[in-house]
Amino acid sequence: MSKKSKIYNFKHEYLGRSVVTFFGLLLILITIIMVLFLASKGMATFLDNHVPLTQFLFSTDWHPERGIAEGGPVVGVLIFIVGSVLISGLALLISTPFSVALAIFMTEISPKLGKKIFQPVIEIFVGIPSVVYGWVGLTVLVPFVRNHFGGLGFSMLAGSLVLAVMIFPTIATVSADSLSIITEDYKEASYALGATRWHTIRKIIFPCALPGILTGVVLGLARAFGEALAVQMVIGNSIRIPGSILDSTINLTSIITMDMGNTAMGTPWNNALWSMALLLLLISFLFILIIHRIGRKGNVSA
């Protein structure tokens, strides 16, 4: 092979291929390193501080600052887990009907409006930084809840409402995608049998797109679970399990962001925060697993 063709090959084939391969492998490597790092940090609570796993997961005693004289630090994180589950769950309940309805409207009822107006609007929502959501929540939503529902305003309800707005683009976009790929054949067959448009949507299109919609819902849930800043600003961060949706509470991400910088590395307190971070990672793995399950089921039935 001549020298010229070597250079040609290099420029037109191997250069691009190498760069792409390199970054692909780098990404996998970074993922593995991060998981291993988090796992090693997160296990310190159990291996170095000898906190039993059951106590860590199922105890509501959170006294990481307690000195040896008073019985040593206690790190039970059930309050934070319950807080995360309740806030994200409520956000999902609020957001899902709106998002799915919007997705159906913009794909089936008025695709023209959907493309021209709804798509850009949703994209704008995705681009708003979470600190802005939090700030608006703190300024508008917290006083609103205080004046119209009672309580202090800093509440589970405020947190869930902020999250609901934040996850709606995720659910709506994924749902709309899965609705729009339903083939025309199904719709035409349904119309041919005399079904109305709403009948067709309810009996044919929605069930066919359900796996995709569920994927969107789980993705939304994953986002809700991992969101820290915006929620933290409006839920009040009282370390307790809320008695009502108007009570202030706290979640996993809030306690981590609040205490991370102010606790020294290697202390039981800091280790407990790492363990919570590991827990969040495991939960998000679980969500990804569920999404894959739904995806596979969808493929089988289609």
């Binding site: 202090l152 800093f154 933290q232 600003m233 009040g236 961060n237 009282s238 370390i239 307790r240 202030s248 706290i250 962001t257 609040m258």
Partner: peptide, 9 residues
């Protein structure tokens, strides 16, 4: 008092 106060970062 535990659990009474609001906490801000």
């Amino acid at each position: 008092a535990a659990g009474q106060a609001l906490t801000e970062e």
